[in-house]
Amino acid sequence: MSERDTHMAELREIVAEVLELEPEEVADTADFVEEYEADSLRAIEILARIEKKYKVEIPQAELNEMRSLKAVHEVVARHAGWQD
């Protein structure tokens, strides 16, 4: 498993838990709001778990961008310095 695959799997698990889905139900590019009825509080909860797990701080401005698993990965990678 590449570094990217590991991170994606971890993030998928976080997203699935907050949105109360099975990890395999979270598609890479599916829009959280449109596909899974997520709201801004769910986005904050996802962010909170990510900040705790990876000990990173992600600016509030990025919150609007984090609308799919792939987008979440890109934002976290940028702030956590991942070379994925």
Binding site: L41, I44, E45, L47, A48, E51, K52, Q60, L63
Partner: peptide, 10 residues
């Protein structure tokens, strides 16, 4: 208090 993230407390 575990975390305060963007105006939400956990």
């Amino acid at each position: 208090l575990e975390q305060v993230v963007h105006g939400a407390a956990f």
